[in-house]
Design a binder for these strands. Sequence first.
DNA 1: TTATATTTGTGTCATATTAACACAATGAAA
DNA 2: TTTCATTGTGTTAATATGACACAAATATAA
Lengths: 252, 252
Amino acid sequence: MRDLEDFNDTNLQPGLSVDCVLFGFDNNELKILLLKLKSIEKWALPGGFVNVDKDVNAEAHAVLKNRIGLENVFLKQFYLFGNLERNLNTHTPELIKNGIISTKRIAFFKQRFITVGYYALVEYSKVKETTVDFISEACEWHSIHNLPKMIIDHKEIILKAHQTLKKELNTEPIGLNLLPKQFTMPELQALYETVLEKKLDRRNFSRKMLNYNILKDTNKRRMGVKHKAPILYEFDMENYNQAIKNGFNSIW
Amino acid sequence: MRDLEDFNDTNLQPGLSVDCVLFGFDNNELKILLLKLKSIEKWALPGGFVNVDKDVNAEAHAVLKNRIGLENVFLKQFYLFGNLERNLNTHTPELIKNGIISTKRIAFFKQRFITVGYYALVEYSKVKETTVDFISEACEWHSIHNLPKMIIDHKEIILKAHQTLKKELNTEPIGLNLLPKQFTMPELQALYETVLEKKLDRRNFSRKMLNYNILKDTNKRRMGVKHKAPILYEFDMENYNQAIKNGFNSIW
DNA sequence: TTATATTTGTGTCATATTAACACAATGAAA
DNA sequence: TTTCATTGTGTTAATATGACACAAATATAA
């Protein structure tokens, strides 16, 4: 969708949207990709509407592809936000005044929107384009600890996504898509510490990770560091996918 | 909603429904509460539509209250089913012929329905009424291993709910609502074994459960059994709720 | 060339948890 | 009072965890 003329709500599932919390990892910070809305001084999660003849999960993937230019990312439904306050009522006057939405579509935008929350883990460096479209004017990463003003409940959605990610770290590995193809043990640990917001013991972390058997030693080391060169690892994709599928640390 | 005349789709979120997988535990079997649809030889999960001015989670609770007569149950969203094949196309002719839906509403029923899946844990004995309404003629428990023919993807929804429950058993206790107020350790173990579909060691199970500190010894024993009288336990509600809230067996 | 600072890789040890197993106690029925 | 099924609890070996310390590598400073 490039501009307003292309926008037509007749094929859209009324009152339903998808919103994607994109987690990136940079500079030992967990970051979220946000869009700055035109004519509203607030930011929003990348999201979209659901076509009546499109699979909902496919629409979430389409958001990432069309608005951010990302394909094949790890994307997962985590919650449906369906409370009554979810609408753009307070913003519709500005949106209409600035020609972002047409008066014909006003009812569509004023209704309560139920949104399906997805989270995705993406390699920070892969998102370069600051795509703009008919409703957003900028696309930037923001530290999860320093979020700008956001529309409706998008801050809560991010919070819930983060809680979900933390919890899932107990039963599933992460790192793929968040880290470059090859990475060191300290880098992997920094990712875990950032997501979990706590320090972990270096030696115990390494032992535990290696025991999961999802890492492959590439027999290379990261060069050009001003201290002992750390081993470069890759994920063993077969075992990694197995772990994603079956989970680990199951107690029963 | 007692009959067809009361049914009006103008206030309903089009193409959206909620469906509830009610787990019950009886005779060492995991059972699911199902509705037999009028004029279709298939069963369905108790579900409902979403009013545009109702909170989605509240609508799921309303389904349980209005259709099953249940209040204050543990009810949890687990997945949104949004693929393209989710519609009643193949059934609308029968439904119209038998006067279950009116021709005026045909478009409403033929559209693709996105449904929010909830699961609930309920005490088997508390559901007695076989409520019938304008679309269902019976309401019965079915063993999860012997499900009747079901509409659309309701079998898949049950499967996914069961998988979710199994997985969540690693981080959260269950039992409250599935068992009577007072229960014995072997009864609790039977519940776990049924949900997990595997045998557990009696001694290790007992030790682990007691270590979670969610059980209170009532200093009573189940009488009238033809062997050693087992201790009756209750859940320690404070610790139980704490465990539900914070989870347990977190590894990081 | 050598010393220093920093960071990485790995080992140890005490403690806690788990899995596998056995035996005594209880209560009804024979 | 013997038998039987079932419950409660203890033991032990193997494994995992948490808290630690030291040696190796590498750039930089001396």
